[in-house]
Design a protein around this nucleic acid. Sequence first.
DNA 1: TATGAATGAGGGTTCATTCAT
DNA 2: CATGAATGAACCCTCATTCAT
Lengths: 203, 203, 203, 203
Amino acid sequence: MKKNRPKYMQIIDAAVSVIAENGYHQAQVSRIAKQAGVADGTIYLYFKNKEDILISLFEEKMGSYIEKIEPVIAGKESAAEKLLLLIDSHFRMLSEDRDLAIVTQLELRQSNKELRLKINEVLKGYMKLIDEILLEGKQNGEFSRSLDIRLARQMIFGTIDETVTTWIMNEQKYELNTLSIPIHELLLNGCGAGTSGPSASQV
Amino acid sequence: MKKNRPKYMQIIDAAVSVIAENGYHQAQVSRIAKQAGVADGTIYLYFKNKEDILISLFEEKMGSYIEKIEPVIAGKESAAEKLLLLIDSHFRMLSEDRDLAIVTQLELRQSNKELRLKINEVLKGYMKLIDEILLEGKQNGEFSRSLDIRLARQMIFGTIDETVTTWIMNEQKYELNTLSIPIHELLLNGCGAGTSGPSASQV
Amino acid sequence: MKKNRPKYMQIIDAAVSVIAENGYHQAQVSRIAKQAGVADGTIYLYFKNKEDILISLFEEKMGSYIEKIEPVIAGKESAAEKLLLLIDSHFRMLSEDRDLAIVTQLELRQSNKELRLKINEVLKGYMKLIDEILLEGKQNGEFSRSLDIRLARQMIFGTIDETVTTWIMNEQKYELNTLSIPIHELLLNGCGAGTSGPSASQV
Amino acid sequence: MKKNRPKYMQIIDAAVSVIAENGYHQAQVSRIAKQAGVADGTIYLYFKNKEDILISLFEEKMGSYIEKIEPVIAGKESAAEKLLLLIDSHFRMLSEDRDLAIVTQLELRQSNKELRLKINEVLKGYMKLIDEILLEGKQNGEFSRSLDIRLARQMIFGTIDETVTTWIMNEQKYELNTLSIPIHELLLNGCGAGTSGPSASQV
DNA sequence: TATGAATGAGGGTTCATTCAT
DNA sequence: CATGAATGAACCCTCATTCAT
């Protein structure tokens, strides 16, 4: 399996670094190769083409994050707590790797439609995770019975995403994680949690 | 004023149509010219360069939308009603011009950072509009006193944007405007409106 | 006759000024038209095409100079005096119109082969003038009997031309006309005048 | 070093040939590449841009000529002999490579001011060589004590240059080298050599 | 496995010239 | 005579990918 060889991750990390520093359109394959310390041709021993580097980058970084976060979330008791953990972990992951944050929030979005469709495939796992939290919240009465899960998921993901993008655009001048609790409260309210008890944020 | 000559809008409309059909990276100037029924060189009598077409496109379509919607919203009495009108008009505008929806939600986001910064300038007017609604809602007690306007704005814009993008990605298989009221309800709840009275959506 | 209409010279003068200021490749027809205070299309009522402006420019400025200098030179008695007058007038003409000097010595030489062939046609009158001086000098014993007129002419024209070009390249930091007498002496020597009497420069 | 790889000279030679045949403005990069037997992109592995090909061409051909001729001239005893060698070598070099003659005398002069300034840099070495010959001739009494070196150099270079250009313009109908001795005699006279002894051309 | 020299397709923009008014 | 909006051909350069070593 090529993915297990050291140069595989070496190239992906080089891609993140080069794209974050120079932007998507300045991230030539030769530049990534140089940063990774390999020859241009070597890239093609590990990746089908340039697009494949970017997809793999997203899969490795986001895919592995989703896999990692899933069991941790499963350990929490209430949907509210799960949602808070989701938001906070999301913010923490991107705060801790600002290059990755720039790449996923700004640069990778300049890619063509095809690539973005494939990125969406990876995100589906994340959407499913959100849906499960919402479903649980509906079923155990934490959230409104009439909650439309698809719309609520768009609200949650859209809000998180817009929040991170704004933070990046403001050159990360503030601590992203300080927003976890207020954003959580907003979203809980949105889901109808505020009507039947104390805010879960206060838990 | 060049903007008043008929070919100006003719070229912008051609750009929307060509980009929607072929994608951002396939939208060669010569293709846009052909679609507009003018010579390649004529483009440069009306626009500084290719990027200028795209900026102008966004300014004309979104900028004029913002200007148009502003007084209509001002006519509404409550913040909740204003928010509903904002959402519903946003959805309606993009439903009525699906090419424009594709261009603004998917294609224009592939542009370089510079262009996107200029697009953000145009969007600032929209953000300000949202902020005003939120401020009004806070002041007249419709929304929670503790509402963080910046975060609430990110929630509102992020949710609307994500909802439209999902609709586009699903090839517009459903009516976007049917989502106006449920999205409105979600967002109102998020703003803390549900805690102190009947949902404004029911107004 | 188009040449008698005021706009004809107006356009030529505008061309000299625009080319001197901005260089040959920046001298677009529209720029010349603007400088001349006429519409682009008007240029084509007076000139066949852009090249025709440049040829006419050279014909008018250099051709008229040659016609003017010819009778003055004819009035001088010795070949040596005639040569001095030729050199000094040449330097004076270009000193007095530095724009023209820049255009003829530097900018017009960037034109294509065809244009330069036509310029050479105009210069033939000048070459003939030099040849006549040389022939007279040979016949009356001022110059060497063995002088090759063609080569001597190349020396004279080449020296004058190189001297003016060097002066232009040095940004006209010195008075070109101070070189008339020493250059004259060099060239007289070259023609074998120094062997049979006092320097003609001292006449 | 890129200059040592065979394709470097291959491309330069192709450029000379293409420019000589089709003219400066018709010498597209793709045409030069084709003539050199390489792909368009390969040009850019050896040269920064198109202008760089032309500068390099001049440096390689004229620069290397100047370096080569310098020690040979140093071996001659008198300034007169040195001058003859300079003229004759100059004529020989261009006679032996008529494409190069066309390119340097006619085509390269159509280039923009910037390129011509760089060409002048290369020529400065040549001017220095002429100056050294003149200085030596003045000091050892071969040339007139009152000789102005700068003006004499302009005469020498101007005469040689004009002679070659006339030869090119006449489509090389005669042997350029037959002019070496008579031109030499003209220039020696010009430098005041004829006044104090037998012509060095007769040596 | 690894290299890196070589490939070649593809597009934004300028500007001399025209022609309907 | 005069205008100036419209035309459209023409070209340099980049960079993802290949393949001989």
